[in-house]
C-alpha cells in the first residue's frame, strides 16, 4: 500500500486522480474498516498535513469549518458555540475524548453513517459543502449532497463546510445507550429563526432514522411562521413522530423510536443557549 502526505488541497486532489487512493482523515472509521478487511485501499492520502483544512473562522456572512477540524476542536471553539450551537452540542456527545481528538467533521460526512452525529446539526443550520475534484470546485447544499449516490466520487475531496450566519438559534439531542461512546439510536437537531414571539423559520433534521440523516421539509413548513408556546411544541412533537413513523415503516426499531423521538425533540429544544434569546 502507498501512503501520501500532501501539503495542499490541490496536491491531494491530483494524487487522488492518478492513484485510486482513499482520503484518510482521522481514521476512526477508515482504520477500523481496513483492520476488518471491509475496505482494502491501494493507497492512502493522509490529509493531516494540510493546515488549510483545519481552519474554523468567520468570513463575510459565513462560519467556515475545514473538513479536518476534529470534534474536539469544534467543541472547544467559541464561534461554534455561539453560531452553530447544535453542532457544538453534537461535538460533546460524540464518541469519547479519544475519538473526538481524532475524528473529523469531513470524515463524518465521508463515512456518512445513518447515525453520524455531525450531520443533523449541519443540515439544520443550512450548511453548504465545499467540494474539490479534478473537475474543479463545487459548493452544494448539504441536503442536496446527501441525496447523491454514491455520495462522493473517489477523487472528490471535502474541503469544508460553510454555515450562513442568519442568527439561527439551534439545539441538538441524541439518544444513546449510555452517555459516552454511544452510537446514536436517534438524534434531532433543530434550528429556528425568531422574530419577537414568532418563529419565522424552523429547520429540523433527524439522524439514525433512515439510511442517512435528513432535513424534514414538511416539518419546516408546518412549524414556521407561528407563535412559540406550549401548543407549538406539542404540534412539533406530533409532527416529528409522524415523520419518524413514515421514515421507519415496519422496521423493528420503529415502535420504540416513534415514542422516543418526542423526548429527544423536546430535549433538543431545551438545549438552545438561553442567554440573549428566547428559549423555546
Amino acid at each position: 500500500m502507498k501512503y501520501f502526505q500532501p501539503q495542499s488541497v490541490r496536491e491531494a486532489v491530483e494524487i487522488a486522480q492518478t492513484s485510486e487512493a482513499a482520503f484518510l482523515a482521522g481514521g476512526t472509521d477508515l482504520v477500523l474498516f481496513m483492520q476488518t478487511g471491509k475496505i482494502k485501499p491501494i493507497a492512502l492520502i493522509d490529509l493531516g498535513k494540510i493546515p488549510q483544512l483545519k481552519m474554523i473562522r468567520e468570513t463575510e456572512g459565513y462560519l467556515e469549518i475545514g473538513s479536518m477540524a476534529t470534534f474536539a476542536e469544534m467543541g472547544n471553539n467559541e464561534l461554534i458555540y455561539k453560531q452553530a450551537h447544535a453542532l457544538w452540542l453534537a461535538c460533546h456527545t460524540m464518541g469519547s475524548p479519544q475519538i473526538r481528538n481524532q475524528a473529523t467533521i469531513g470524515g463524518n460526512l465521508g463515512n456518512c453513517s445513518p447515525a453520524a452525529d455531525g450531520l443533523p446539526p449541519l443540515l439544520a443550520l443550512g450548511a453548504e459543502v465545499h467540494l474539490v475534484s479534478g473537475n474543479g470546485d463545487e459548493v452544494i447544499a448539504l441536503e442536496s449532497l446527501l441525496s447523491r449516490t454514491p455520495l462522493l466520487a473517489q477523487d472528490t475531496l471535502i474541503q469544508g463546510f460553510r454555515i450562513p450566519l442568519k442568527g439561527f438559534q439551534s439545539g441538538f439531542a441524541k439518544l444513546g445507550r449510555r452517555r459516552a461512546l454511544a452510537i446514536a439510536r436517534l438524534s434531532v437537531a433543530v434550528a429556528i429563526e425568531v422574530d419577537g414571539n414568532l418563529v419565522t423559520q424552523v429547520r429540523v433534521a433527524l439522524g439514525a432514522v433512515g439510511r442517512r440523516a435528513f432535513l424534514s421539509e414538511a416539518l419546516n413548513q408546518d412549524l414556521s411562521g407561528q407563535e412559540i408556546n406550549e401548543a407549538w411544541i406539542e404540534k412539533g412533537v406530533e409532527q416529528v413522530q409522524r415523520i419518524v413513523r413514515e421514515a421507519l415503516g415496519t422496521r423493528a426499531s420503529a415502535p420504540y423510536k416513534r415514542v422516543a423521538v418526542s423526548g429527544v425533540f423536546r430535549e433538543a429544544l431545551d438545549s438552545f443557549i438561553t442567554e440573549g434569546g428566547s428559549n423555546a
Binding site: L24, V31, L32, Q98, N101
Partner: peptide, 21 residues
C-alpha cells in the same frame, strides 16, 4: 481506551491511528 496514548498533547486510541499518521 486500554490502548490510549498521548500524541502531541492529545489522548488518542492507538488502535485507531496508523503509525504513519
Amino acid at each position: 481506551g486500554a490502548c490510549t496514548v498521548i500524541v502531541d498533547g492529545k489522548t488518542v486510541n492507538s488502535c485507531l491511528v496508523l503509525a504513519a499518521q
